[in-house]
Amino acid sequence: MVKNVDDIIIRTCSRIMVPFLQIFSLYVFAHGHGSPGGGFQGGCIMAASFILLAVAFDIGEAKRRFSEKANALLCCVGVFIYAGAGAVSLLFSSNFLDYSAWRHIIPVGPIMARYYGMVLIELGVEITVMAVMVSIFLDLVTAGDQEAVLEGIDD
């Protein structure tokens, strides 16, 4: 399935590329308000950096950087942030997902409260998309048996 190909060019290039991919992902996420981009796209780029690690090194390297436990946790945390951001509005007798109610928490007007609410939910989207992409990739590429593949590499 996943062979351990030891190629110094591929390893060095991907090691250099991964931080830039992650910074670019955060840029796409943070700049989604003024230009094309946002949580979905940023999350995909962030996931691509971990998938590049898994492809260029091996599954174990990707799992050392981003353990399965953290992965499963982040899948849920993203959705939780989004739904929680909506539910916070309910506490201030406002509609679900109406971020202008956040002006009671953060010291800005209702318009900028909507702005920051959007930033928060985009963060939730980014986290979920990133974690789910990596999780699906690792499950598919090892046919669901990540431990067996890891042991095969150690041999």
Binding site: G32, H33, P36, G38, V79, Y82, I111, M112, M118, I121
Partner: peptide, 28 residues
């Protein structure tokens, strides 16, 4: 209304927030 210069983002995340929330749920 939202202080966001990108109409796509404001429709995606604010006016159609339910839609995007369940898109995220679908991915999850």
């Amino acid at each position: 209304e939202t202080g966001v210069p990108n109409a796509v983002t404001s429709v995606l995340a604010d006016y159609r927030g339910y839609d995007t929330m369940f898109e995220t749920s679908v991915i999850f």
